[in-house]
Design a protein around this nucleic acid. Structure first.
Lengths: 234, 234
DNA sequence: GTCTATAGCTTGATAGAC
DNA sequence: GTCTATCAAGCTATAGAC
């Protein structure tokens, strides 16, 4: 009865999780400074003092929110990438397959994981673009999995200089986090034709879009890409 | 002597601009809620009460910060696009040329416009990814210029369905605002090989990367692109 | 493990002197 | 136009009852 399973049903652990859920939701909506400990406690139907009891303080609660799903997400992404590599032929998975392994776990959790995951990804979207947290927090929780994906991409694009791979990943990252921020911007810009929460639309497009960018910049085969670059740019 | 030029040198107008500069810098660093009116006034060496006097309140100051450079930036971008269209042959500018017209004004202002522009773009990066401001604020200040660019792209990609164009723009937008957030993430991820503030590196890469994505998804000529899609994805 | 009570500050806004 | 003084409200954090 002292398993992790049993721990989850203990009274205090339930309160702790509820506080994490509420904090996740509110931080995702208004950012770290836009939310008060009292608001989080009220949303969780708990006492504000419990934030200090379980986490130490507001900042530590923020870190706990970020960590909770990062661990699960990284495991899912790693499994998905390894599956993708097993399924590929001896030449290895394509750039697009690798990118899909990186992005699809987010799509899946956002669609099928419940509202907590949606909030979590929206929060990541804000943290990523913040000068205050963007470098340190993202490195802390996601560097290992990103490096693992970059290795896979390096094998798929053997002629690519590392510098190109990092910049391509950077562009991918920007497109990805804006997508999962689901701000509603594309809805109003397109007059309702496209919807922020239509993640299957993203599923069809993002790996192709980003894959084309990787191929263009990472010049998988210099001879063939030089040709297309020339007539594309001039 | 009652020209706009003269107005800029009037005592009160100078205070107003200094408050805008300080607010821009601090909002860019910690977001709307992470900054206090007192901190802004202190940074500007002015009295906190002057925020109410000139702007009405904190929120109105925030709007004034966003508006100030949006107006100038939109004019620069429009001029740049029209120049690009004039310079192009009868077949019109390429996708890459149009994208460069959209992104280069940001690169130029960030490099040559002084620190205020850098702060401004970092702030835009945060606002864009925020569920609270991402849709409304961005639409308010940037919808007209974005629609103008989408029209240009529609001419360059005559077979593209509108839906594809909007999603491609969405991916472009994500990559762009993360770039100008200059969070330092790529610096640590790449171990110093790439630098967030190396905007000439972006200048060389972003239009090619994004252009390839547009071409892939918007299938400029179905016959030719179908071929490359096929051998790319499977 | 949960709650009350409260300490000790800081917040945005404003009234009114100069 | 600028400043001082101040308000009412809200903030995080904590000590201690239960």
């Amino acid at each position: 009865m002292d398993t992790a399973e049993a721990n989850l049903s203990r009274k205090g652990e339930r309160t702790r999780q509820t506080l994490l859920d509420s904090a996740e939701k509110l931080f995702a909506e208004k950012g770290f400074y836009g939310v008060t400990v009292r608001a989080i406690a009220k949303e969780a139907d708990a006492d504000p003092a419990l934030v200090a009891y379980y986490f130490g303080g507001k900042r530590e609660l923020f870190d706990a929110v970020l960590l909770r799903r990062a661990e699960r997400l990284n495991q899912i992404r790693l499994d998905r990438l390894e599956q993708c590599e097993r399924d590929a032929g001896p030449e290895g998975p394509s750039v697009e397959d690798i990118i899909a392994s990186f992005t699809e776990p987010l799509l899946d959790r956002s669609e099928n994981g419940g509202p907590g995951w949606k909030s979590y990804f929206a929060l990541i979207g804000q943290v990523t673009n913040s000068p205050e947290w963007g470098a340190d927090v993202m490195a802390k929780y996601f560097d290992p999995i990103v490096r693992r994906f970059l290795e896979a991409l390096r094998r798929a694009l053997p002629d690519a200089p590392d510098e190109e791979l990092f910049w391509c990943y950077h562009f991918l990252s920007g497109a990805l986090v804006l997508t999962f921020a689901e701000t509603g911007r594309i809805d109003s810009l397109s007059g309702g034709l496209c919807k922020s929460n239509d993640l299957s639309a993203v599923h069809r497009r993002l790996p192709l879009f980003v894959g084309a960018g990787f191929r263009r910049l990472c010049a998988e085969s210099p001879a063939s890409s030089a040709q297309s670059d020339l007539d594309a740019t001039q």
